[in-house]
Computed example of a mutant assay.
Amino acid sequence: MNQIIEYKNIGKSYQGKWVVRHCNLTINEGDFLCIVGTSGSGKTTLLKMINGLIVPDEGDITIFGTRVIDQDIISLRRKIGYAIQGDGLFPHMTVAENIGYVPRLEGAPKEEVDAIVERMLSLVGLPLDSKEKYPKELSGGQQQRVGIARAYANSPKILLMDEPFGAVDSITRYQLQEDLKHIHKQTDCTIVFITHDMHEAFKLGTHILVMHEGKIQQYGTTEEVKNHPSNDYVKQLVEMTR
């Protein structure tokens, strides 16, 4: 397996309080990593360091073998898909314009952008006639699918997802989880996915990172975490899923 993301003794503080410290972690190409933990445990901080939205106060993070701080941040972000809760779509743009946004920025010709849009709609299971609709004309689940399609549109090697299904109903969430598992198998993109839900983490992830109070409690394959919790905190989370 090729290493794609590495955290080296990472630390980040806000107003004198460390939210993450002494974090060392390697993520390999093709992994589906679910980061689990309570609010304030450092999950989103770790995620946003990958695309440079947050800069560590200590240590280094490398992406594609190069330190983030040594890379052109705009170019890096265009290689990394980003999907958040509530989809983050541009309300004044059609579905097609939202999905094709980054390829257009990269200078792709119209014919190529159109082909990407159609391919992405097919990937996330949306009909082609949704291209000219605006986000407000779609259901919450459809909007979330468009958000995923936009995140994948530039064929990213890495996809960051910050609780993307937290704002949809349970039935829609189940279907989106199934769709995302299928998409991951089709594309083999490396996914870093934040969730509060251990059930969701076990369902989706190839690997799980459990965070608590800014420290890694356990990192391993889904089976390792499920069958061999490293401490009482992780054991308690696992038992809640049984």
Rank of each mutant, 00 (worst) to 15 (best):
V20C: 03
G40M: 05
G166P: 01
D232T: 15
L53Q: 14
T190H: 06
G100V: 03
V238F: 10
G16N: 11
N2P: 13
P56D: 06
E29A: 14
Y174A: 12
D169E: 03
M93E: 00
D197R: 00
Y101V: 09
Y7F: 15
Y14F: 15
L138F: 02
G59I: 01
I116G: 00
T241L: 03
C189D: 08
L159C: 11
G141E: 04
G140K: 02
E118V: 05
E178C: 09
Q218E: 14
E239C: 09
S130I: 12
T195E: 05
H207T: 08
T45R: 00
S41L: 09
I74P: 08
K181I: 10
P156G: 07
T206D: 06
T221A: 06
G107Q: 02
G88T: 04
F64M: 02
R173C: 11
K8W: 05
G125Q: 07
C34Y: 04
T66Y: 04
E112H: 11
C34D: 03
D72K: 09
S139D: 05
L121T: 00
D188E: 10
R173M: 13
G86P: 07
G81D: 01
D87Q: 15
N227F: 09
Y219F: 15
I54F: 05
G52R: 07
P127I: 00
K79V: 14
K235N: 15
I183L: 09
Q143V: 10
N2G: 12
G166V: 01
K12Q: 03
I73S: 11
L204Q: 02
T44L: 09
L33Q: 05
M120A: 02
I27T: 10
M1Y: 09
Q71G: 08
G42F: 01
V117I: 11
V102L: 04
C34P: 06
Y219L: 07
L159Y: 07
K131Y: 00
I74M: 05
I171T: 13
L128Y: 04
Q217M: 11
A167N: 12
I84V: 12
G125P: 00
V55H: 12
C23H: 02
N231M: 11
P127A: 07
R78W: 01
V234P: 05
V68N: 02
F32W: 06
